[in-house]
């Protein structure tokens, strides 16, 4: 009789690898009247794969729609075989998926194919959406009214960022693609065609428990992510490298960030 730990280790290995049980494991398991050992074990092996693929699908539905069900099945299976879950939570299942896609996509002259980058970024957006959805938020905080900040203090002001505020950059217009996908899904249409490469910037936050996506221009991303990182307004403005940005645009950007409750107060 195998010690319990050895038996568990052998059984889990067989379930996760989907491999035919070796003789030593087979001898530990009993058939039923109607089913041999291998078929009984296959219930767990099949369920393991199907469950994880299904969970990955519900975590990354736009990605799954973009690649189609057959390709998704293949990619998801490869991912779960190479990255067996190590967390008690199925919500963590997709955390390594974007990197996996980037690392395993076909390459040309050492660089990943464009489609691989796009798909990896789409999966990354979906992972970020989940993290903002489940992470800390500001629903229990009273909205902060910045009021008029005295002009002589303005440049030295630091804002405290909402804990749900997240900034992401992409090499593709991922937010636009995701919005189109959501719209077409509602209309029961087909997934949008894959976009051409074009950098994009995005802020994610959560209001009333719903995740909000706010597309940004490059300079807005620079300014707001610097503020969220704890820089003063003066330092964040100094970092801007876009000469076309004028005071009116900056005021509009601050107003937008206040409207979406990016800030919970003045940082000490």
């Amino acid at each position: 009789m195998k010690p319990l730990r050895e038996l568990q280790s052998d059984l889990l290995h067989s379930i996760q690898s989907g491999s035919w049980p070796d003789a030593s494991l087979q001898s530990q398991l009993l058939p039923s009247v109607q089913m041999p050992v291998e078929a009984r074990l296959a219930v767990y092996q099949n369920a393991y794969r199907a469950r994880l693929v299904e969970c990955l699908h519900s975590l990354c539905p736009a990605f799954a729609a973009a690649v189609g069900s057959e390709a998704f099945q293949a990619m998801a299976l490869e991912y779960v075989v190479e990255n067996p879950p190590d967390s008690y939570s199925l919500n963590d299942l997709a955390l390594r998926f974007p990197d996996f896609l980037r690392q395993t996509c076909p390459r040309e002259n050492g660089a990943p194919w464009e489609s691989g980058i796009f798909l990896s970024e789409l999966a990354r957006l979906e992972v970020c959406l989940d993290q903002v959805f489940d992470g800390p938020g500001i629903e229990d905080c009273r909205p902060w009214d910045p009021g008029p900040i005295p002009a002589d203090q303005w440049l030295e002001t630091r804002f405290a960022a909402a804990p749900c505020l997240t900034f992401v950059t992409f090499e593709f217009p991922i937010e636009r693609y995701y919005s189109d996908w959501k719209q077409q899904r509602r209309a029961a249409g087909e997934s949008p065609s894959w976009p051409a490469r074009e950098p994009s910037w995005l802020a994610l936050t959560r209001l009333d428990y719903r995740v909000i996506r706010i597309p940004l221009r490059s300079w807005e991303y620079q300014l707001l992510s610097a503020l969220a990182a704890g820089h003063t307004v003066g330092a964040a403005l100094e970092q801007l490298d876009d000469p076309t940005v004028d005071a009116e645009s900056v005021r509009g950007c601050f107003a937008m960030s206040a409207r979406h409750r990016f800030w919970t107060g003045i940082a000490s």
Partner: peptide
């Protein structure tokens, strides 16, 4: 043969799980 049949069968998932997906605008 039985095992292969079980492997080919459409996935019928034992409980668990039930997951809660993110809600986005």
């Amino acid at each position: 043969t039985d095992s292969a049949t079980a492997r080919r069968a459409p996935p019928v998932l034992p409980h668990p799980p039930w997951m809660i997906s993110a809600e986005t605008e």
